[in-house]
Design a protein around this nucleic acid. Structure first.
Lengths: 216, 216, 216, 216
DNA sequence: AATGAATGAGGATTCATTCAT
DNA sequence: AATGAATGAATCCTCATTCAT
């Protein structure tokens, strides 16, 4: 319990120390503003006042601004990953069913995960150091790998077109879903749920072996 | 010829008056650096020195930094739009063929259009004023509408699943293609061309009426 | 016992009330860091953690940062002065012998006095208020006066060159010895002891009446 | 002629570019304030306003605050060194005469060199990077070596006590002279000139072979 | 005695922008 | 057309200090 601890491992999720609730509030507040105005355009003061603190006080909790960006991103990714890994519909059954569950779960995270709002903009991670970038890359990779395995499975099972490039497909699907917040403004008549349904139909049809091949 | 003109219409493409070649060089240089480091992280000095000028000298050509961002974006979009509109494969034939050509042309612009590199990052347009944002929105809308018309046509022709929401589909396809540069590092064995082929197969299969419906 | 007392006399050695051992530890720790990094570059947190306390806790013992600097300096000077005054070799005998003892004692304080390390750098006292500066000036003056008396005596006794300006000589000798730590890194082959021997020879020869005058 | 040049060689004396006169003014102003208040206590704004510029404008000339400290120090040392090297009285004749000239010249630099005032305080160089510290160390070493050669010569010639440790002697003499400004406040009756005379007598007597040895 | 939390006044540095030449 | 010089507002971060518990 010793004030801001020394710059130990820069990846340390910084748990268990300090007022953990405050820290979460700060991350949340920062994430909101980052997604509203972008990382660079966001001022430390912006964040502080959203949380009801003074500029300097934030430094009791964080190392620096980039720290915030990293913690937010890694938290969001990890929560996302965990949610996917814990969903038994994703880890059991045939590939078509798994993929369907994957899309559902992924979209529901995008809609109501703790850092849901982050999806609205690509936050620029270039401000992070190499080590931190790597940590984020790793988390992303895990999600990627999870999906890729499903696709490979589907090809093996004969449900997905064998000509499918699993890497292309994986990236396409992930970026497709991640782009949702950029164009979709949820409304009563077209909630995110509908988009998820559309994705399922579109993606599954796109991957599925066409009974009758098509031109080319 | 006449030095910097008064703050006319902020959308004015600023044609004629000034050394058009220089201006293009500047836009190009700026675009490169913007996509390398992001808009905010790019300094006027960065741009100036890439073009071989001194900071202050840039102001002979431009109004301000955001000006640059706008001009680059609008140019890129307009070129993109024009290329699509002038491609007769996109404006003639059945929807399946048109969409196929649309994807091809779009991807080839992404690969070798004047501002191709821009695709690698979402450049943040929040720095632009409302008026300029609107102009960009309009250009984007036109591309969007072009594609949407094809999809609506395909549904009418019975080639695309009638349950398809044209708006969802349009956005999906556009964002899908626009995300390419974010994950694809072109290499000898998997050039962008291959990705375009994949997109065509994936998207068309995704839209096409499944002869035998699928689960749900 | 009574927490931090009101801002009494800023020179008050703060005896009694508080845990004297802790206070000494703190002074010692602070002195070390001051001499390592300089006064300004040293943070309260640096000091606190060296003593195993938390930033805020230090204020239970001290008034403020400058307080620390003052207490350290005045302690060091007083110990120095006392050591010199209590050395009978310095207060008895002829001037040559007294000066020789003075140098020995002074150098041994520099080597192993409680605040020996302070000598390595001139600690900047400009952060102290006038009153405290005066107190330090007074302590220094006493040491100065002690030495000066010896020199005057030596001149009177005819051992030192009558043309000697006692003030110049006093300052020269004192600053000479005080500069030792700035250039001398003690090693097995040239311990501080050797430097002290050199000083004795050099200084005494420098002051002693030249049997045969020299040029000028 | 391109604005503040890139952080080339951090030792570059930064000559020939920019308004050289301004740069000198800035160095001079900074040096004055550094010696008045110390490096850390000096604000960039302090310096700027002494030169009649605004805070930010200083950065047109310098890299950062430490840059200033370095340039000042290295300039002062180099001027000092040059003055010593160009004085033929120092490079010709017997050691006694050379040393005498050395002291004279050195003291006159301290009195009226461009950065004379610097002598009043030991400026803390810990803020400089390793490379710069090394450059300064080198300059100091040259001065040191110059003096040391004279002393070695004197011993060889039989004028200086053969028991003299040339390193000890060199450092003593240099630090002795450098400490002058710390205690001497020039006045009509005791100008620096007198101190120089005293140093010559004291130092030469201190080094010279005592015709009749003394105790020990 | 000690701590965790907060404060707020600075201070260094950056940079878009201006403008006389 | 281009430049060198200057501006000044903005921003990140530091740190001595306070204080309720």
């Amino acid at each position: 319990m010793t004030g801001r601890r020394p710059p130990l491992n820069p990846l340390e999720p910084r748990e268990g120390t300090l007022n953990e609730k405050r820290w979460s509030e700060i991350l949340r507040g920062a994430a909101e503003i980052f997604s509203e105005k972008g990382y660079e355009a966001t001022t430390i003061e912006d964040i502080a006042s959203r949380v009801g603190l003074l500029k300097g006080s934030l430094y009791y909790y964080m190392e620096n601004k980039a720290d915030l960006l990293f913690q937010i991103t890694i938290r969001a990714l990890n929560q996302h990953l965990q949610a996917l890994q814990e969903d038994s519909g994703i880890t059991h059954g045939d590939a078509v069913s798994r993929l369907s569950h994957f899309i559902d779960r992924f979209m529901s995270e995008i809609e109501c995960g703790e850092f849901a709002f982050l999806g609205a903009v690509d936050i620029d991670l270039r401000f992070l150091g190499a080590e931190r970038l790597a940590a984020i890359g790793e988390a992303r990779h895990q999600i990627n790998a999870l999906l890729k395995r499903i696709i490979v499975l589907g090809i093996a099972e004969g449900d997905f077109d064998p000509k499918t490039d699993a890497t292309f497909a994986t990236n396409s699907i992930l970026f497709l879903m991640n782009s949702t917040k950029k164009w979709h403004r949820p409304s009563g008549t077209r909630p995110i749920r509908h988009v998820a349904e559309w994705y399922k139909r579109f993606i599954l049809a796109g991957l599925t072996t066409s009974p009758t091949g098509w031109h080319e």
